[in-house]
Write a protein that binds this DNA or RNA. Structure first.
Lengths: 357, 357
DNA sequence: CTGAAAGCGCTTACAG
DNA sequence: CTGAAAGCGCTTACAG
């Protein structure tokens, strides 16, 4: 790549003059100016990005760090895309990296991602996926601002007091329970592995709402070694076999809801009359479910945008501490919920349906 | 952030000595060495990333450029994740950026993404999404290696001779047609907007296979203003209303297949006997479809890995021109295809089913 | 074994 | 109006 020296040589001026012309700073004779511009164009000269990073002491780059997440989920992709949109508009680039680390390592034993092991590589970090206290501790020791999607942080709630963007899935689950109760349901189950932090939060919202209503929580499926569709399928079997007899199910996410939906359909349950079903996530890819799935939208696009814009605020005003912010979710009513049938369909009545062609 | 000067001052040595100790190059007295190490640790010193980028003339950064794609699809996320995995292993970082540009702008009128407008910001580019010739022309003028997922390139095939990774969706569509023919189908429809480059390629594979078999191509849905589920739904209506009477449908992607599946189910078609259905993409989120969707896997993870590794080869050996590489797809047989019923169910027989509860 | 100095590409006071 | 020089943070021959 040509450097400013090449341009200076070709235009037969000093590098200082080239710099002045190209940056429109200071005086320049119009002929000199023309020579410089032509030389720069001829050589297809582009200023070196790394110089300005070194000079400005700012890389104009943000790191999106997806922590401890083996697969890929749409939620993260949408957060990433939303961050990128905001940051690009503000002249920042976005680096995507994954980072897996043990939750129980001492902070000193953690091997930081390459971009964080150096200084000056990034101006700030957005934390998505699952993160643990040991890593946050390490981050806190550096003059590097970060923001975090708080819902899947595994540590104590106190660590979420600052820098976090949260969505109110706890409140949304309570709302879902209230909605199902208004429809007349009393036997409402929750399906999700509560050992995982985000399902744990959701279960908590559900449990509290049930308790306040004087209803008995029903839940299955801690620490099963699968997820998504298969998880939903196994949960269906368990809920029906164990005689728990729910008339409505709140699934920990849409994928589990889809698994429940598939298995219930196979067993000839007619939704929503034989069973009401609510998902969480409002994922468009599950629009294929019929009747359409009632689900809780968490508005990831806005969360991603806010993660980015809050980070930029912190970068620009490092002194001001930013309290965490919690955003509401919304129950999107579709067609998968209805009042419970009377009498409640049981295994026998359902089995009878299988006889008819 | 502390610099090497701060460390040198604290250890009471020159910056050269600090550099030698920290990089383990050259001799150093063990006491001096200890003083330097302690000073660096005390100050939590990290070398400045931008200096080494400037010095090495390499940013160790790759740009993943998602072109002209308004939404977010899993395919791109998987490609991105696969690239990141390979690149991280090789000491490179990955920047994610989107880039929308008009296909008919002159190359000179294009505003390049920030990272490409500067020199030295990235060492190479992976092109995903949709790209056009004008932009490639601009890229070709620079000493910046790139690789491209060729299937959604909108320009002439000749421009795909180098630097491209392709998946053989043309061959896969021909294979799908052959498979359906073996099952006994003759009226096989294709559903997808062939005006889009990737659907155009897939249609071409389908059309050729049909022609060679002496069968008449059946297709609907050019340039409808929607996509995915809704597209599949409208296509179903059109295929059935217009008396095209297919017994099998090859969908341009899994989402369209899901839309067809949903609408056919609503109309009381029993899959696979009333209609066989094949998708493209083999997306796990459509695992909820029952009977399970037969689909063509394009192995995005391998494509993403190869996009990254080929790019690294090009960076390391800039002189050698790399021919494009095409990778096979695979038809994953599940339960959505069967021999056509005899007699073929028509609108009347299907309508009769709706009468029975 | 250690320090002074040059240099990566560029900008910006400072002379002339 | 233009050039020589210092400096961003660091490494690496080159002296001593």
């Amino acid at each position: 790549m040509p450097t400013i020296r090449d341009v200076a040589a070709r235009a037969q001026v000093s590098v200082a003059t080239v710099s002045r012309v190209l940056n429109d700073s200071g005086y320049a004779d119009s002929q000199t100016r023309a020579r410089v511009l032509r030389a720069a164009a001829d050589l297809n000269y582009q200023p070196n990005a790394n110089w300005s990073r070194l000079k400005r002491q700012s890389s104009q780059t943000i790191l999106f760090l997806l922590g401890n997440w083996p697969g890929i989920v749409m939620m993260h992709m949408r957060l990433l895309a939303a961050c990128e949109r905001i940051l690009r508009g503000q002249g920042y680039d976005l680096v995507f990296a994954r980072y897996d680390y043990a939750r129980d390592s001492a902070p000193g034993d953690l091997t930081l991602p390459r971009m964080l092991a150096q200084s000056g590589a990034v101006d700030g970090v957005v934390l998505a996926g699952v993160h643990h206290e040991n890593f946050l501790h390490l981050l806190d020791q550096r003059p590097l601002p970060y923001t975090m999607l708080g819902n899947s942080f595994s540590g104590p709630a106190a660590a979420q007091a600052h820098n976090c963007i949260l969505y109110d899935d706890i409140g949304a689950c309570a709302e879902a329970v209230a909605y199902l109760r208004r429809l007349g349901h009393r036997r409402i189950a929750f399906v999700g592995n509560v050992a995982l932090p985000w399902f744990g939060r959701r279960y908590e919202g559900y449990r509290q709402a049930m308790q306040e209503a004087g209803l008995e929580p029903i839940s299955v499926g801690d620490n099963w070694p699968m997820s998504g569709l298969d998880y939903g399928q196994l949960a269906t079997a368990q809920l029906l076999r164990d005689g728990l007899a729910p008339t409505a199910i709140l699934a920990g996410n849409d994928e589990i809801a889809a698994g429940l939906w598939r298995e219930l359909s196979r067993r000839r349950y007619h939704l929503p009359h034989d069973m009401s079903l609510i998902g969480i996530g409002n994922r468009p890819e599950f629009g294929v479910l019929d009747p359409a799935l009632t689900s809780i939208s968490v508005f990831e696009d806005q969360l991603g945008e806010r993660l980015a814009s809050l980070l930029l605020e912190r970068i620009r005003h490092p002194e001001s501490a930013h309290a965490s912010e919690t955003y509401p979710c919304k129950l999107i009513e579709r067609a998968s919920c209805a009042p419970p049938s009377t009498p409640m369909p049981n295994a026998l009545t359902i089995a009878a349906r299988k006889k008819t062609p």
